[in-house]
C-alpha cells in the first residue's frame, strides 16, 4: 500500500526556499547541506554499519548514485538527498522545481528491492511550509515508526488537517 499525500489548496501564503537550486550549483549544494542538517538530529548512530552490511558505499548519507558514468553530477534534485536513518530504514528526498501556487508535498513508504530495508520517499517543492511537514515525517520515520503501516497512519494524520483528499 502506497501512502498518502498533501496539497493544501487553501494556503497561498508561503515562501519557496533555495528557489534557484536547479539553476545555480552553489545554491544546490547549500540546499543539500540544508537537508543534511535537518535530518542529522534524527539519525541513529548505527547507520554506518547498516550501510556497510547492505553493501553500500562508505557514505551512508548518499545511498544513490547522482552522477552519470562520465562523472558529471546530475544536479536535478532526484533525489537531492538520501540516507540511512536506522539499521533497516532509509530516506529519499526528491525536490522538484518550485512552481506550484500551493504548497506541494507528498510521501509514501516502500520496500526496497536493493536489500532488506524500507524507505520513506518524500517528493516536494521546498517552502517554509513544506519543510515543517517534511521534518515531522522524517523525525517520526527515524525515531518512532516501527513499520510501514504505522508510518502510513502517521502520514495520514499529518496530512489529514489540510489535504485535498
Amino acid at each position: 500500500m502506497k501512502n498518502t499525500a498533501v496539497l493544501d489548496k487553501n494556503t497561498t501564503q508561503f515562501k519557496f526556499l533555495f528557489q534557484n537550486f536547479l539553476e545555480d550549483k552553489r545554491i544546490y549544494v547549500f540546499n543539500q547541506n540544508y537537508w543534511k542538517k535537518t535530518v542529522k538530529p534524527f539519525l541513529q548512530k548505527n547507520i554506518k554499519p547498516a550501510a556497510a552490511e547492505n553493501n553500500i558505499a562508505e557514505d551512508p548519507h548518499n545511498i544513490y548514485n547522482t552522477a552519470f558514468a562520465d562523472g558529471q553530477k546530475m544536479y536535478d534534485g532526484n533525489p537531492i538527498f538520501s540516507t540511512f536513518v536506522s539499521q533497516n530504514k532509509t530516506l529519499r528526498i526528491v525536490q522538484e522545481e518550485p512552481e506550484s501556487e500551493h504548497p506541494a508535498i507528498t510521501a509514501w513508504t516502500e520496500k526496497s528491492d536493493f536489500d532488506n530495508r524500507k524507505e520513506l520517499v518524500i517528493v516536494l517543492e521546498l517552502s517554509d511550509l513544506t519543510k515543517k511537514i517534511a521534518a515531522r515525517l522524517i523525525e517520526h520515520w527515524a525515531k518512532d515508526a516501527t513499520d510501514e503501516k504505522s508510518m502510513a497512519a502517521f502520514i495520514d494524520s499529518v496530512f489529514s488537517q489540510n489535504t485535498d483528499k
Partner: peptide
C-alpha cells in the same frame, strides 16, 4: 551505474 532510484511524480498527484 547502480544504484539509481528516480521518481517522476505526476504533478499534483499523491503517488
Amino acid at each position: 551505474f547502480a544504484r539509481i532510484s528516480r521518481t517522476f511524480l505526476v504533478k499534483g498527484s499523491r503517488d
